[in-house]
Computed example of a mutant assay.
Amino acid sequence: MKLLLLLLLPLLAPTFAARAQTTTPPPSTETAAVQATIRAFFDGMRRADSAAVGATLAPGAIFHTITNGPGPPAVHPESPAAFLRAVGTPHQEVWDERIRFEQVLIDANLASVWTPYEFYRGTTFSHCGYNSFQLVKLAAGWRIAHVIDTRRKDKCK
């Protein structure tokens, strides 16, 4: 029996080694496309290019923010049109929202994306929080249909 085990061990060793080596698979084509849409949104914001930002939005897109000011937390709608005007209005400092993709979930033509962020005006830290994006896949590709975010100045990752 020991002899049989010794003879089989060299044959089984590569199987165990292969299982021990795990790699993170590259993102799917759809995941990459969803991430590219969100990156284009923030790249346009950094360039103060409201047309580029607007091209990432679905018709009827909705923006919300959750505030934690004095009093209980509240949900506030924000106007996408006003946001686009603000992005395109000349300002001295670059609006730089630095995100990380923590989770991208996709089913058919719907994607949900979770991104922690830190926002800087130029090199000055402004606030941080999390974005939750809902995207839809339209004929023109993935577009942002809804963004809701949290905002705070402390307890940033």
Rank of each mutant, 00 (worst) to 15 (best):
E97D: 15
R100A: 03
V104T: 05
T89F: 05
T124S: 06
D96W: 06
C128Y: 07
A82I: 09
S132V: 00
F83T: 13
F133V: 08
F125C: 03
G69P: 05
E78D: 12
P70R: 13
H127P: 02
V87E: 15
P80E: 10
G129S: 02
F101E: 14
V87H: 12
Q92P: 09
T115W: 00
G88R: 14
G71R: 12
V136M: 09
H91M: 07
R100T: 01
V136C: 10
T89R: 09
G69R: 15
G129T: 02
R85T: 12
F119V: 01
G69H: 11
V113M: 04
F83M: 15
W114H: 01
H64K: 13
Y130M: 06
T67V: 10
V113E: 02
S79T: 08
T65M: 10
I99C: 05
P90N: 09
T65C: 02
N68I: 08
E93I: 07
V113H: 04
V104S: 04
I66M: 07
A111L: 03
F133D: 00
D107I: 08
V136P: 04
V104N: 04
V75W: 07
T67I: 08
E118Y: 01
E93N: 09
Q103V: 00
V104F: 03
R100L: 04
Q92C: 05
G71M: 11
T124H: 01
L110E: 02
L110W: 14
Y130G: 04
N109F: 10
R85D: 11
G122E: 01
N68M: 14
H91K: 12
E118M: 07
A86Q: 08
E118L: 01
A82G: 10
D107G: 12
L135Q: 02
T123M: 08
E93T: 04
A74P: 01
F125N: 00
E102H: 08
R98D: 00
I99N: 02
T65A: 12
F101G: 00
S132D: 02
R85E: 15
G71N: 10
P77L: 09
P72T: 09
E97K: 14
L105W: 13
P72D: 07
F83V: 15
P116F: 01
I66H: 04
H76V: 14
T123D: 05
V104Q: 04
F83N: 13
L135K: 01
E93K: 09
I99Q: 09
P70N: 14
P70V: 13
N68V: 14
R121K: 13
R121V: 06
F119C: 00
S126D: 11
A82Q: 15
R121C: 10
D96S: 03
N68F: 14
P72L: 14
Q103H: 08
W95L: 15
S79F: 02
R100P: 02
V87G: 12
G71F: 12
F133I: 15
N68R: 13
P90K: 09
R100C: 09
P73C: 05
A81F: 07
G122F: 01
E102P: 02
V136E: 12
N131T: 00
I106H: 06
C128S: 12
L105R: 13
G69L: 08
Y130T: 04
I66K: 05
W114Y: 01
S79W: 11
R121M: 14
T124K: 14
Y120Q: 05
P80A: 12
L110D: 01
F133H: 06
H127E: 12
E97W: 11
P77V: 05
Y130N: 07
Q103D: 10
E97F: 11
A111S: 06
V87Q: 05
V87R: 05
